[in-house]
């Protein structure tokens, strides 16, 4: 916890459905420098988890920082975290603030 930013929250999302079910916008060199959750689809793993909220900004995925990553790369990292068989969950470090 000492390593976390004061306003950040760690959320573990179990892979409970065949999709993650979030839409993100943002990435390096855009108006939204870190990816922000813009949609949570009903029936997806993220929705089932119940702890993700629209508007939250994703700082890290499984401990990997999304800072300075362009949109496509951030999206790829999240997609790979969902796809990997190594873990049956994804850890998101989130903040409410930009």
């Amino acid at each position: 916890p000492g390593l976390l930013e004061p306003t950040s929250t760690l959320v573990r999302v179990p892979k409970s459905a065949s999709t993650l079910g979030i839409a993100i916008e943002g990435g390096a060199n855009t108006r939204q420098p870190l990816p922000r959750i813009v949609t949570i689809q009903r029936g997806g793993s993220a929705h089932n988890c119940g702890q993700l909220k629209v508007g939250q900004v994703i700082l890290e995925v499984n401990g990997i920082s999304l800072r300075a990553r362009e949109h496509q790369e951030a999206a790829r990292l999240i997609a790979e975290a969902f796809k990997t068989k190594e873990k049956d969950y994804i850890d998101f470090l989130l903040t409410e603030f930009n």
């Binding site: 979030i22 916008e25 943002g26 060199n29 949109h71």
Partner: peptide
Amino acid sequence: REKRLTLPPSEITLL
């Protein structure tokens, strides 16, 4: 003249 740098909006990706 507008001096503020405006960054482009981001695309949206469904995951």
